[in-house]
Amino acid sequence: MKAPLYSLLLCLMLSACNGSHKNIPSTINLPEFPGFEIKANSDFGSVKLSGYEYKSVDGKTVAYNTCAEATNSKETEIAEYELFRYRLLINSCHALKRYLAAKPSTDSFFPSQFDASLVRELPATSVPLLNKTQEEARTGKTVNTYFANGQLSLEKNGSVKLQTVDDEIIYTLLARGDLTNDGIEDLLVRTEWYARKASGKHVDLLVLSKTGQDKAVTIEWRLMSN
């Protein structure tokens, strides 16, 4: 009886040393998916939604009961003042789809905690982008170097807030898992931008990868292009 136990312990010790035999399950940050009926072995089509209603441009109430309904809808039908909230739902639905397709990882180079020190190392382009000028100015820089005077803080829900003179940017970890099919754990992160002195707001969804301890975090995929 003891031999299998010793083997298991040895295996765990070895995997801790070289990191190539881990089996890290994908995980989802469920509180960030309110009204999503996600069960074990859910597939994207079977996940039901509750409480997602919007006003249309002609004043009617539009309700979405599944992500398929929501992602197949046209945002031009939604009243302008509901647009951001509608885009948050679309963002969540895409995140769910990515998470359900994720595989367990064999290794991870991300820390277990999603916090300010991790956000500091993310590419500066991780902030929802408004145009090419912003993208070019931020390319090759990290949050730490581009927003040198920005204040980072941890929010009650575990999100990280980056505040600058003009902007507030919220980073929320939605899921972890192998999202890029290379065996290495990636992060699925929602980023929200809010203008502090105006009404602008924008949301994006990112797949972040880190393929080595000394490698920089890269954006492997994003929902919104500018």
Binding site: N131, T133, D166, A198, S199
Partner: peptide, 16 residues
């Protein structure tokens, strides 16, 4: 533009 972006962004982030 200013209602959406704020005063500094319409000049600094939209140079063209």
């Amino acid at each position: 533009l200013i209602f959406n972006l704020g005063a500094s962004k319409i000049v600094s982030n939209f140079p063209t």
